[in-house]
Design a protein around this nucleic acid. Structure first.
Lengths: 347, 347
DNA sequence: ATTTAGCACTTAACTGCTATGAGTGCTAAG
DNA sequence: CTTAGCACTCATAGCAGTTAAGTGCTAAAT
């Protein structure tokens, strides 16, 4: 019943908006007097207190202690983001900052993703995160063998999304560069004709290239033959995280328990990957507001994410901004939207 | 005068050693009574107090406040590390842990450096740092052009140290893969014959390959022609830093001012690069103990570094471990030594 | 001549107490 | 339905008092 009231009742919404905006601005619990004085609602503190009681019962705000002001709950933030907030448009200045951050002339995939995390951090003043597009899904474009020194071969794999992977492997038999070129030429022919990914290429080699199996196997062992078998490495390389230092000066991180929780959360790649992985497969942006009930891994923090998609739709990843739940959503959300779109265009 | 006393006087050294070891173990200022009871010096607290007064005058220890025990100063730590400490040998267990951390079958340069920072962190329980060997100094081994899509060419450069760099560039004229192969073949011929680095190759192209200048220039623009012009990127890519979270539980990081200072220091790549850059050009390991007087950028922290060198001496970089000044030097130093040597062998 | 016991002293840290102030819920009047 | 008034709650700050740790100094002991 209260839910319906709050959502339809204009006055309730006004007060909730005032409380949230007040809290975002001051980082202190906001009281009835503050709302009455600073927002033009033409209501006395006592009236506002009545409304606050309703909002509290509905679970949108709570009191840290009896005689304190009110603080938005996760539910409150969610309602604010979905219904109350007016997002600001991204300014020309910000647009220019973004374009400056990307040095477009001189780039590779790693650079771009790294610059994206920087752009996210710089503009939002929170911590930007970029999840790289998955490599294994994409088909191969080119393969190359380079003999680095006797018995050591560097295998370079180029994927259609312009991502380059390389592995240095040891082979018992020293294969000359000329011979290597023969192998790579033949594999590249197959790659071009069949338009295949790693798994398919592996099958083709096994079924159709019996004559060279021995040599090819010793070259490819540890690369194509077990490409995705290193989760640790994939974790580390597919995530680009901006500096967490920008956040340390936020007032909520003044007690060291929270600082530690925050630093540990940001550094726990499993959590971040999990959430950004969810975001990747969404159609549109998604907002994770941490609370004990939902997304308890990031209690007190919020993560705003958006998927990005290359123009040919071959590449799909996601970006995000993580910061305190008391976050400037109305500024951050357009930034995320803009950068996700921009990133989709340039990759 | 006091200096001479302390360095020659056995009793002074014993007490200093006791104080430092006591402080390393407990993280609390150590008093005369504690030393007298826990170390077999056969001295009463009063006698130890007399010696402490001498040590304090010499600047090796200090009192946080009047009625507190003594804490080593940076000078004290330095003397301890150089003259007092007995380094423990690295255990078999640790040796095995290191070898497990490196998956030797399946590696590339980035992986290895990343694993190194992990190994440093895991073994020391502090934060490991790896400075990658400089790329620009090394000569080229191979160059390859791959047409990713119309007008987009991926330039792959392989250096003799097995480091692979790639850049995606836009060219106004769409060059087919066949033509690209021609260019790369010719460049690879040059590279093999002349054994040259990027700068030399650039000169050779400019002076000797006039006929193809136009096409080659549009391909190479932004790669070979201005290879090192992206300091930001170099900074980010050449440094591998282990998790800082391991350190957060150290007792010195219980007040939030110190946590913030520490996190900011670790994340300030300029500081780290500066110190590891110094270390790289040293012959042997080096220990930076932060104090207001010396290395004030890392006050309260210590950084132990060692250079590493590949067997053919082409590759030179450095590794380090950063942690609180109250660090377990006797365990960390052999770890650094061992890993620096190990890394030199496998790259 | 050194070592040590004893003592007065200093300081941080903790304790319990009180006053203050911010903010509330409730009630009754407008 | 709004609001003024009032009693109530709780965090915070400040203050005096206590405790524990550890010191420096002096005089006695070895």
């Amino acid at each position: 019943m209260e839910d319906i009231d709050i959502i339809t009742n204009e006055r309730c919404k006004d007060v909730l908006l005032a409380i949230i905006e007040g809290y975002l601005a001051t980082a202190n619990p906001v009281g009835s007097k503050f709302v009455s004085e600073n927002y033009y609602l033409n209501l006395s503190p006592a009236s506002i207190r009545n409304i606050m009681a309703i909002l509290e019962e509905g679970g949108y705000i709570y009191q840290p202690h009896f005689s304190a002001g009110r603080v938005p709950t996760a539910k409150g933030y969610k309602f604010y983001v979905e219904s109350l907030m007016k997002t600001e448009k991204i300014s020309k200045k910000q647009r220019e900052t973004i374009k400056k951050t990307f040095h477009l002339e001189n780039r590779n995939m790693g650079d771009i993703l790294h610059q994206t995390s920087r752009a996210l951090s710089d503009l939002s003043h929170y911590t930007g995160i970029v999840l790289a597009p998955e490599t294994s899904q994409t088909n191969l474009l080119h393969i190359e063998f380079v003999r680095v020194k006797p018995n050591n071969i560097l295998v370079i794999m180029v994927f259609k999304n312009a991502i380059v992977e390389n592995r240095l492997i040891y082979v018992y038999k020293d294969i000359k560069q000329n011979e290597l070129n023969g192998y790579s030429d033949r594999l590249n022919e197959i790659i071009e004709k069949r338009d295949c990914g790693i798994d398919e290429l592996r099958n083709i080699i096994e079924s159709e290239m019996c004559d060279d199996k021995e040599n090819l196997y010793s070259i490819l062992n540890g690369t194509i033959l077990n490409f995705t078998n290193n989760p640790d490495r994939n974790l580390a390389n597919s995530l680009y995280i901006g500096p967490e230092t920008v956040l340390l000066d936020e007032p909520e991180f003044s007690n060291n328990k929270q600082i530690k929780f925050f630093i540990k959360t940001i550094n726990d790649k499993k959590i971040i990957i999990k959430l950004l992985g969810l975001a990747k497969n969404c159609e549109t942006k998604r907002i994770f507001i941490g609370s004990d009930a939902e997304w308890s891994e990031i209690t007190g923090l919020s993560l705003i994410t958006a998927p990005y998609l290359s123009e040919d739709k071959a590449l799909r990843g996601s970006i995000g901004i993580i910061g305190p739940s008391r976050m400037n959503y109305s500024q951050v959300i357009p930034i995320i939207d803009f950068i996700a779109e921009f990133l989709g265009e340039i990759i």
